[in-house]
C-alpha cells in the first residue's frame, strides 16, 4: 500500500479539485482529507458517513471563580496572554482560544482554583463514497492541534486501507509548510505538489521542496492554470529538473473546474474538458512512478 500526499504550499492552487479527481480515477484506494482546517473534499465526493469519533487532544485551563482569590499569579505566569483581568467583575478569566494548555497556571495557582481538563478538538469520520472509502475530520472552531488530527486521520485511513487491501491512500494535505503539513508528509511514500505559475507559487514550491527534502521523500509536481503565465511555468519546470522533482504535467486554465465544483462533482466526472484530460494524464504519470 502506497500513501500519496497532495500538497500545495500556497493555498487555493486547485489542490482539492485535483485530489478529488485522483480519488475518482484511482481504483481501489482510500481517500483521506487532511486539510482539516478547510476540509472541502466532501463537497465534491459526497460521502455517506458510516462511523465517527471524537478527537480529544491536549488540555485547557479554566478558572473556577468561587475558589479564585484574584491573586493574579496565573496572569503573570501565562506566557500566552491567555489570562486577562475583567475590570467589570474584578475577576481573572482565561480565554479559551488563547490557552495553549501548558498547565503552568493550574500547577502554581495557590488556591487550586484552576481546572485543567481534556479538550475536545474535533471529530473524525469514516465514510463511503461511490469511489471508495473516505476518512475526514472537522476541527472545532478555534481549536489547536490540527497536526495531531492530521496524524489521526492518516492512521485511520491506513487501518481502513489494510482492511480493504487498498493499493493506495490518497491524502489531501493542508497548505503551508508548518505543523499540519509536517504531520501529513512524515512517513508517507510520495508527495505531489500542485502549484501555480506565479512568483508566489514558485517561491512556495521552493519552500515545499526543501521541506520534503528534509524527509527524504520523492516529490512530484504539476502546474495548475499554466497558461496564466507560460514564462513562469517554464521556470518552474526548469526548477523541477534542477532539483530532481518529477514534473508530471500542466493543467490549463479552464472554467469547467469551477463549474464542476458548483455541481458538486470532481473535474474528471463533470465533462471531457481540457483540464480533465490533463489531470487524467498526470494521474497516469504518477501511478507509473509510484507503483
Amino acid at each position: 500500500m502506497k500513501e500519496l500526499v497532495v500538497i500545495s504550499g500556497k493555498g487555493g492552487t486547485g489542490k482539492t479539485s485535483i485530489t478529488a479527481s485522483f480519488a475518482v480515477l484511482s481504483k481501489n484506494s482510500v481517500v483521506a482529507d487532511c486539510d482539516v482546517d478547510a476540509a472541502d473534499l466532501f463537497l465534491v465526493l459526497n460521502p455517506k458517513m458510516i462511523t465517527s469519533g471524537k478527537f480529544i487532544s491536549g488540555k485547557k485551563a479554566s478558572i473556577i471563580s468561587e475558589k479564585c482569590l484574584s491573586c493574579g499569579k496565573c496572569f503573570y505566569l501565562c506566557k500566552f496572554d491567555a489570562v486577562s483581568y475583567d475590570d467589570l467583575t474584578g475577576k481573572y478569566v482565561i480565554c479559551d482560544t488563547a490557552c495553549e494548555g501548558c498547565g503552568v497556571c493550574a500547577a502554581f495557582c495557590p488556591a487550586g482554583a484552576i481546572s485543567f481538563t481534556e479538550r475536545e478538538c474535533g471529530e473524525w469520520f469514516i465514510s463511503k463514497t461511490s469511489h471508495g472509502t473516505m476518512v475526514h475530520a472537522r476541527l472545532k472552531i478555534g481549536a489547536e492541534n490540527s497536526g495531531k488530527l492530521v496524524s489521526l486521520v492518516r492512521k485511520i485511513a491506513r487501518e481502513e486501507g489494510v482492511k480493504e487491501k487498498a493499493e493506495k491512500i490518497i491524502v489531501d494535505g493542508p497548505p503551508g509548510i508548518g505543523c499540519p503539513v509536517i504531520a501529513s508528509v512524515t512517513g508517507s511514500d510520495a508527495v505531489f505538489a500542485v502549484t501555480e505559475p506565479s512568483l508566489s507559487g514558485k517561491h512556495d514550491l521552493e519552500r515545499v521542496s526543501e521541506l520534503v527534502g528534509h524527509f527524504n521523500l520523492p516529490l512530484f509536481a504539476c502546474v495548475n492554470k499554466w497558461d496564466v503565465n507560460p514564462e513562469i511555468t517554464l521556470e518552474i519546470e526548469k526548477f523541477c529538473v534542477k532539483k530532481g522533482i518529477f514534473f508530471c504535467g500542466k493543467i490549463p486554465y479552464d472554467k469547467n473546474v469551477t463549474k464542476a465544483q458548483i455541481e458538486g462533482k470532481s473535474v474528471v466526472e463533470y465533462d471531457e474538458s481540457p483540464a480533465a484530460r490533463e489531470i487524467s494524464k498526470i494521474w497516469g504519470n504518477l501511478c507509473g512512478k509510484i507503483l
Partner: peptide
C-alpha cells in the same frame, strides 16, 4: 489561511477582519 491557531494568533486584537472568499462551494 485556515481557522486554527496560526490564524487566530494573527487575527487576535484586530479592530476589524476582512474575510476574502470566492464564489464557489
Amino acid at each position: 489561511p485556515g481557522n486554527s491557531c496560526p490564524m487566530i494568533t494573527a487575527v487576535r486584537g484586530a479592530d476589524y477582519v476582512v474575510l476574502v472568499t470566492e464564489p464557489t462551494p
